[in-house]
């Protein structure tokens, strides 16, 4: 996902009293490096710009881990809070989102381990997928006839955590192999093999759900 896509909401009026014009001036005059330096000194306005830049990516990444919209919002926001508190430990040579993603994932793993605190943390009820605006006609027909987006999401959720995560990062968030390798701290080769196994597993689950005659696209 490119930065401009994740940045579409950044120009909205601020809740901290910043006007749109002042906001845009700050955005254009400062690069991310200097913003992060300001965040390190506890500057909340600089952190606001960073949050608004990455919030969509953060939300979708959290969705890959938690399955549900509410939990994804909650988790991604809490990870930003933790990131703000730990800004002093942030290494400027690292990409901010890579560092943030590690916080997000550790937070998720801690919460998941502590299951008593988070009953039904990974809810399967949320229908997270929808058709793109102009799908090919045969795919639209197949999807609508079989409620395929919900079946697909249900099966993605039944994959083990690491496979679900990599499927969503690659197939629905469009990260490159290199970006995934950085986020997950694994070699590119491992990204490829994990992706292969995840797709194979998902394919087998999908084949069980959908009658053979309906699988011809």
């Amino acid at each position: 996902m490119s930065d401009h896509e994740s940045n579409t909401n950044a120009a909205k009026p601020s809740t901290c009293g910043y006007s749109i014009y002042k906001w845009q001036a700050i955005r254009t005059s400062l690069n991310e490096q200097s913003l992060l330096e300001r965040c390190k000194k506890g500057d909340k306005q600089a952190f606001e710009i960073i949050v608004k830049k990455y919030m969509k990516r953060a939300y979708f990444s959290a969705l890959a881990l938690t399955h549900s919209q509410d939990n994804a919002l909650d988790l991604s926001q809490e990870a930003f809070v933790r990131a703000y508190r730990s800004m002093k430990n942030f290494n400027p040579e690292m990409k901010f989102f890579t560092w943030y993603y590690r916080i997000l994932k550790n937070l998720f793993l801690n919460l998941k381990r502590n299951t008593s605190k988070i009953k039904n943390f990974t809810s399967e009820g949320y229908e997270a997928l929808e058709l793109i605006e102009e799908p090919s006609a045969d795919v639209r027909e197949l999807v609508e006839a079989n409620d395929l987006h919900n079946i697909l999401w249900k099966n993605i959720n039944q994959l083990e955590d690491s496979q679900r995560e990599i499927i969503i990062l690659k197939d629905f968030q469009d990260y490159s192999y290199k970006e995934i390798s950085e986020l997950l701290e694994i070699p590119v080769g491992t990204v490829m093999s994990r992706l292969f196994n995840a797709r194979k597993n998902l394919k087998e689950r999908m084949c069980e759900c959908i009658p053979l005659r309906e699988r011809n696209i």
Binding site: K12, K52, M55, V81, L129, V143, Q173
Partner: peptide, 24 residues
């Protein structure tokens, strides 16, 4: 081919409008 024609649902704009306030 199926997954290529699907995307993750983006929450309503209000969700992201209030996102920073909640973090703050």
């Amino acid at each position: 081919e199926v997954s290529r024609n699907m995307k993750l649902k983006t929450p309503s704009s209000e969700v992201f409008d209030t996102y920073w306030t909640k973090v703050y």
